[in-house]
Computed example of a mutant assay.
Amino acid sequence: MDVTSTTAGAAVALRQSMTQMDTGMKMLGNSAQQQGAVAALLSGGTGGAPAPSAGGNITETRGQNLNILV
């Protein structure tokens, strides 16, 4: 077995896995930002009770995951 080709193959595989991990972390960060923005909108942007002008019934989603696709 050629040691050079084995080492090169391992380096390429490591590089690909690092790229995938970086992409995954960026996507998780974007998801957290989006969920924070939705929570701020639902709470009127103050972090407190819903804004009086929001209208309708707003259900608190504390502790639940929001999966909102735009």
Rank of each mutant, 00 (worst) to 15 (best):
Q33V: 15
S17P: 00
G48W: 09
I68L: 14
Q33S: 09
P52L: 15
E60D: 07
L14S: 01
A40M: 13
Q16W: 12
L66N: 03
A8F: 11
E60Y: 01
R62C: 01
L69R: 08
A40L: 14
M25K: 10
M21G: 01
M21R: 09
G9H: 05
P50C: 02
L69Y: 03
P50D: 11
L28G: 04
R62Q: 12
A49K: 03
Q35C: 06
M18E: 12
A54H: 05
V70P: 11
P52N: 13
M21I: 06
A51D: 06
T46Y: 11
S5Q: 11
Q35R: 15
A37P: 01
P50G: 04
N67C: 02
A54E: 03
V70Q: 07
G47Q: 13
Q33F: 06
T61A: 11
M25C: 01
N65H: 12
Q35M: 09
A54W: 11
T4Q: 00
N65V: 15
G48V: 07
L41V: 10
T23Q: 09
G45P: 03
L14M: 12
T6C: 00
A8Q: 10
A40R: 14
A32Q: 11
I68D: 02
D22L: 08
D2F: 02
M1A: 00
N65W: 13
N65R: 13
K26M: 14
A13S: 04
V70H: 07
E60F: 07
T23A: 15
V12G: 00
L14T: 15
S43I: 05
M1K: 00
Q20L: 09
T4V: 13
Q64K: 13
A32C: 09
G48A: 13
S5F: 09
G9P: 01
E60H: 05
N30F: 07
V70G: 07
L14H: 06
G47D: 09
V38Y: 10
Q34A: 15
V70S: 13
A32T: 13
Q20D: 04
N30Y: 06
Q64G: 14
G48S: 13
S53L: 11
A40N: 07
A39S: 11
V3S: 01
R62A: 15
T59N: 08
S53F: 08
S53M: 08
L28Q: 08
N30G: 05
I58P: 05
D22N: 10
G48I: 07
N67T: 12
L42C: 02
T23N: 12
S53Q: 15
G44S: 12
A49S: 10
A49E: 12
A13Y: 03
T7R: 00
G55Q: 12
G47F: 08
S17G: 01
Q34W: 05
L28I: 11
L41G: 15
G44T: 14
T59R: 04
M27D: 14
A54I: 09
K26I: 10
A39Q: 08
S31F: 06
T46G: 00
N30D: 10
Q35A: 14
L28K: 06
D2K: 04
M18L: 15
P50A: 08
G9A: 15
L41K: 09
A49W: 06
T19W: 03
Q64V: 05
Q16E: 14
A10R: 02
S31G: 03
E60W: 04
M1P: 02
T61K: 02
A32S: 08
N65Q: 14
G24M: 03
L14R: 12
G45R: 08
